Amino acid sequence: MDGRINGMMCRQIERAFKVITIFLTIAVFASTARGDLSGWRIGIDPGHGGTDPGAVGPTGLQEKEVNLTASLGMRYFLVRQNAEVFMTRTTDVTLSLSSRANFMNSNDVDRSICVHHNSSSNPDPNWHLTYVAEGTGWATSGDLAFDISHRVTDFNGLGFGWSNCGREGVYEENFYMLIYTYMPSVLPEISFISNPLEEQRLYHDRYCYGNGRGMYEGIMDHLGGWGGDAGEVEGHALEIAQLPTEFKLHQSYPNPFNAQTVIPLELPQRSMVKIELFNVSGRNLGTICEGIKEAGWPKVHYNAAHLASGLYFYKVVVEGLEQGGSFMDTGKMLLLK
């Protein structure tokens, strides 16, 4: 009897620690002073998605992923301040630029923020700029861009790129989402995913959430939303928001690749994960990964430098260790050397 009770207590304690870990991912950024954005409608467009990866970092990190992570972080803080938030996408889907602009216009949002990360063929640059339509650098859009740029760089420590309108951190450029939306609109290019050191920072959700927090704080500065009493972070709501709801295998990236690739998973609970590699003849070439993974969005990195060019298949088998359940799926990847 005592052994069973102790076992139950250990599992409960383990679960509590996992919840706390997820909670702290964003809670560490939570403001001690709560404000109020009641009545404000904020539109967020995480750039790229689906078949459009956006820019790709030196080791294969895709811009569409970090755009979404930073956007979800921004949404979390805005909702806590009672803003009504509209997002063009909350998952990895393909959307046209016209559908994104129409989404903002049809929802009559007060401000539109289109989130991106920059890239260059030169691996050295790494700075921040927020873009606005031509002629708006000193108008309402420029005011928002200025506040967002300064708050984001307060967090990530980057400098500003050159401004063509004389306003630090702001650049005028007629991007689609800036000229085909009817409300004040900005497009933050948070940092350069092409910079090797920055790409490594962007692999961490906590860093991307921090950039989202910076954009949120810029919006608060712009709209005068600061003030109010100290508030508590809603840990239970955050836990629900941050855990996947089902097992899922995503397409490896980059694909085609040479010679390193990443296999993303979604795990709603702590699980035993095994990934095996097969060639086109069905021969088992060995195990890519085998072990326990925590709930969340783990990414399995694989180096295929020892393999010949060709098409390969990876088989994922998952066994849930908390609520039970199992999952199996297969993906394919093309190695080109």
Score class of each variant (00 low, 15 high):
G291Q: 09
N279G: 14
D205N: 09
E290K: 15
V170M: 09
E232V: 04
L61C: 03
Q81T: 06
Y182F: 09
G169I: 01
L24A: 07
A237K: 13
E276V: 14
K64T: 00
N255Y: 04
P53A: 08
P46V: 06
M1F: 09
M9Y: 04
A30E: 08
I13H: 08
Y176M: 07
I44H: 10
N6A: 14
N126K: 06
G142Q: 10
G228H: 07
C208P: 00
Q81W: 15
D205I: 05
D52T: 14
L267P: 00
G210K: 04
H116G: 10
N258V: 00
G225E: 06
H301P: 00
G214S: 11
Y253H: 10
S149H: 09
K337M: 01
G135V: 07
E65V: 13
D154P: 00
G54L: 09
L78A: 08
S191W: 03
G73Q: 08
Q242V: 02
A16F: 04
E239D: 07
L249C: 08
Y302D: 03
S271W: 09
Q260C: 10
D147H: 13
K274M: 11
R167M: 04
F192G: 03
V132K: 05
H117L: 10
W127L: 07
Q251E: 14
E290Y: 13
H116W: 08
G210N: 04
D124W: 01
S185Y: 14
P264I: 02
G218V: 12
N279W: 08
K299W: 02
E319Y: 06
E134H: 06
P298R: 12
N174D: 15
A30W: 05
P188R: 07
E168Q: 14
C165L: 06
E198R: 11
G231C: 03
E168L: 13
S281G: 08
L321R: 10
A295V: 00
A70S: 15
D221G: 10
Q260F: 01
